[in-house]
């Protein structure tokens, strides 16, 4: 007989790799014990497929890589017209989000340099999802530096959801809330943006300080969750309420003093 703790906690296995300046973790149910070499090879193949997606997008869109298309555009060696189709597609998508969020999300830095980093990580997670589906994986959890997309359940064949904890921005060693993803709950994506983390990440509308220290958005797809989390940090409470009423999302926002604003889905 198994100890109760193992019955309560699904057995999982994970692979991690670094990309886009952060760490990406792919977690899947461990399957039957003992683990076989074939099981582990399956996870290895899946993680390699995800890594290929991230590495390719990073090579094109990173402003930290001098040879990337994004860097060449920033230096003026290229104009948008001469960028790749993929770059133009992402730029168009980001511009569409700028319209939808009334400028709270923008594909440009204040100095006018196109910066798609607010969109590309979410897009990479979405593309990785397609790669995992094409490998036939049903149950998995992909975490890219704190943005999460899940499929299925941590307990194969069950309706149990993945439980995501959300870090307390005032005490990074503890959790401020939980949110169920996948399983029978539907929406599978949770993205979080902060105004205090990577200072270069979010430009606040009007140039002031953001009212929110951290904003988490749960949605059915990761790009929507990611873009809206960024937009709410930049656009404040007005953008929060616009997002909550116009999109099928749940939002948890943490003010600088630790105060919380949350939609019904985050309420215990």
């Amino acid at each position: 007989m198994q100890p109760t703790s193992e019955l309560d906690q699904p057995a999982l296995k994970a692979k991690v790799f670094r990309c886009m300046g952060t760490v990406i973790s792919l977690t899947v149910p461990a399957g039957r014990e003992p683990r076989t070499a074939a099981d582990d090879a399956g996870l290895g193949d899946a993680a390699a497929a995800v890594e290929r997606v991230f590495v390719a997008l990073d090579a094109r869109f990173s402003l930290y890589r001098t040879g990337s298309e994004a860097s060449r555009l920033a230096r003026g060696e290229l104009t948008l017209r001469w960028t790749s189709r993929e770059f133009q597609d992402r730029y168009a998508e980001a511009a569409r989000w700028r319209l939808l969020t009334e400028g709270a999300f923008t594909p440009e830095r204040p100095d006018g340099v196109p910066d798609l980093s607010g969109l590309v990580k979410g897009f990479a997670i979405q593309q990785a999802c397609i790669a995992l589906q094409s490998l036939g994986l049903r149950d998995w959890c992909l975490n890219a530096g704190g943005d999460v997309l899940v499929s299925g359940s941590p307990i194969p064949g069950s309706r149990a959801s993945w439980q995501a904890g959300i870090v307390d921005p005032l005490d990074r060693g503890s959790l401020i809330a939980a949110y169920p993803l996948g399983g029978s709950t539907g929406p599978g994506a949770l993205a979080t943006s902060g105004s205090a983390e990577r200072g270069d990440h979010i430009w606040v509308l009007g140039g002031g300080a953001s009212e929110f220290r951290q904003v988490s958005v749960a949605a059915a797809d990761i790009v929507t969750a990611d873009v809206l989390a960024t937009a709410i940090v930049a656009g404040g409470p007005a953008m929060l309420n616009r997002a909550a009423s116009a999109w099928a999302v749940e939002v948890l926002a943490v003010r600088h003093d630790g105060g919380l604003l949350a939609t019904a889905g985050f309420r215990a």
């Binding site: 530096g145 704190g146 904890g165 943006s193 990440h201 951290q214 948890l252 604003l261 939609t263 215990a268």
Partner: peptide, 27 residues
């Protein structure tokens, strides 16, 4: 659907022991 002020005790609670993944601003 709108966001209301909540106390910490009023949101869904989590212990790190019973979550499978952690969300947070990009680390």
């Amino acid at each position: 659907n709108y966001a209301a002020p909540l106390l910490r005790a009023e949101v869904l609670q989590a212990q790190s022991a019973n979550v499978q993944t952690i969300g947070g601003a990009t680390v």
